[in-house]
Amino acid sequence: MPLLEVSGLSKAFGDNTVLRDISFSLDRGQVLSLIGSSGSGKTTLLRCLNFLEQPDGGRIAVDGRTVFDATATQKLSRAQRRENQLTFGLVFQSFNLFPQYTVMRNLTLAAELAEKERLRAARASREEIRAACAAVQERALDLLAQVGLSDKAEVYPCDLSGGQCQRAAIARALMLSPQILCFDEPTSALDPELTGEVLRVIRALRSDERTMIIVTHEMEFARHVSDKIIFMADGVIAEAGSPDELFGAPQSEKLRAFLAHSRHGEEA
């Protein structure tokens, strides 16, 4: 059974239909890259998966559990909504780190709040809560080491480079152990010389058998890191398949044109 199943997803902003009947599935540990020109709907699709936009139609299921169904009538409880939300993690194009907190606090804040809430509901003792917070701290340190920012734990985001910010943001998204980690053009806001370090970190995560969805304009990266590529055009999936299929033998005229364009660096 696939880990993620999206079926018939659609979304419109007013009269403007941005997504039309999007269906695909993804297995555990797979990496999916969403490519396509600006305005093709790939970022909206990612935002729908992360509940930042409400789709107008369709269904999203993770691990056999429905996390979104446009036809559902009953309202979800806050706890259910939160659980669904945390099934996905999202790394933003512009990092969106919290500027008033250190890198460490950026990582631990949400995780600590969630742990405290959970333990308080279970009437845990103060010692247990303290131990849980210590575990969160430890986990944050591990993740910072993983993204190469051990020495930046107590630094504020304003004193980091763009690449370091994005690596911190990746570690923050990993703190809550999402089943599916999403990236929204993770290197588009970076200077060219800084994209390498971020792409290396993402590539290293792949070896951890994490399921990931990446919206990207880095075609070389998409080709090498992905198991599956979806090419979107005008709000629909124009073509989908393995990197070799899409990059080696593009079927549609649109994809051929898009690939030719990005090879000339116009899309980068």
């Binding site: 930042l52 939160r82 939300q85 993690g89 919290f98």
Partner: peptide, 10 residues
């Protein structure tokens, strides 16, 4: 972005 970051972190 700040609201959205907090939201995706639950």
């Amino acid at each position: 972005g700040q609201y959205e970051a907090a939201r995706v972190l639950g």
